[in-house]
Design a protein around this nucleic acid. Sequence first.
DNA 1: TGTACATCAGTGAACGCGCGTTCACTGATGTAC
DNA 2: TGTACATCAGTGAACGCGCGTTCACTGATGTAC
Lengths: 208, 208
Amino acid sequence: MAKQPTTFAALKEEERKARQGVIVDAAERVFGRKPFEQVSMREVAQEAGIAVSSIYRYFPDQQSLFVEAFVLGTREIISRIDERIASGRLSSLADFALMYLDFLIEHDHYFRMMTHFMLDGQLSGPLLEKLNQAARTILEQFDRLIAGDTSSEQTRQYAHTLFAALNGILISFRNYPGREPVEVRRHMEKLARLTASMCESHRRSPRG
Amino acid sequence: MAKQPTTFAALKEEERKARQGVIVDAAERVFGRKPFEQVSMREVAQEAGIAVSSIYRYFPDQQSLFVEAFVLGTREIISRIDERIASGRLSSLADFALMYLDFLIEHDHYFRMMTHFMLDGQLSGPLLEKLNQAARTILEQFDRLIAGDTSSEQTRQYAHTLFAALNGILISFRNYPGREPVEVRRHMEKLARLTASMCESHRRSPRG
DNA sequence: TGTACATCAGTGAACGCGCGTTCACTGATGTAC
DNA sequence: TGTACATCAGTGAACGCGCGTTCACTGATGTAC
């Protein structure tokens, strides 16, 4: 009598989460087709094959849904980085920078959301907290990679600088006028490698 | 008979430009109060003390008005940089980075527009051309400052990197959670100095 | 100097649209006795 | 096993809003003769 109900409840809760997931997935698919600021609840509903009003059974409003989708993306980056670190395939800082860059180039909608939220600054408390947590986790990854296990105020600064620089490359040159996407990507990668190299050598001899 | 009319016409044209200017100025004032994506034509009209429909006598649509305001801002940055260079008060790359940073922190609406347009990618031809021209001019300033008169493919890469890194700092840390604006600014400035230093030393000994 | 006409800045009201969100309802499933 | 009731996912239609933009009009100024 005490066990059954909780199990049932757990199952229900699980199903609920699964349905939430369906909606978020649908949203992500739509994001793949157009800039996310232009995506309406109606489109997400259609993609998910449900009525608009149904979405509101699972998310209080549009912003919450979008933030959820974003947080999921963050988790994906992080787990990718983790995998690579674990498998020892990230030998240099440049490798890391390139993989971060590539991920964001390929998940353009994620990058758009990221910059959108960075610019926004008027999110409600809990959502903001979620986003900050996501940002913090990524920054920690940067730090760990630069510092090894001996993170310090100084290594954190390099982490911040690299993080910022890569984001900056992505935003500053994405619409490089008159270039093909392939060229743009190559240019970004070149700048990313240069930045990584700058970070690395400067850290070894800061006043060099 | 040939001279008078053209003079009159010129005067008229001048007045027209002046009135355009009044509208753009009004827009900029409103941008100072709220994120520019939220600024409506009605608000600009009210700030300028005219009817909404009057704006359309001077600008074909909202986007043109906003781009115009943006381009004006660009001119302001550029002339500031020029002044400083002329007066010899830009001794180091760090000085330059800091002044670029400070300008964008203080003209937040300009920075927002910049990133907005960078992300956008669906502007109509002539407007896009205007924006690209603006971007190119700024990048040239960066290049000139790094290269002196001997700009090369290599110096241009450093210019791009610095430009991107500074933009990245501005966007990545503007909403640094739980910090006062003063602290945020200090942090950004620290990162900017570090970046400038990295660029400088790396350029002197690229494989150091 | 006076008159008819053209030009054009400026206007208030309206149009049309798309959006996020809510509402009242249906119907299927599970629960209690 | 059967019946009355509660729960809740799912829905289509509607609400209300704010927006960019257009329209038909007014009135002042300049021009031609």
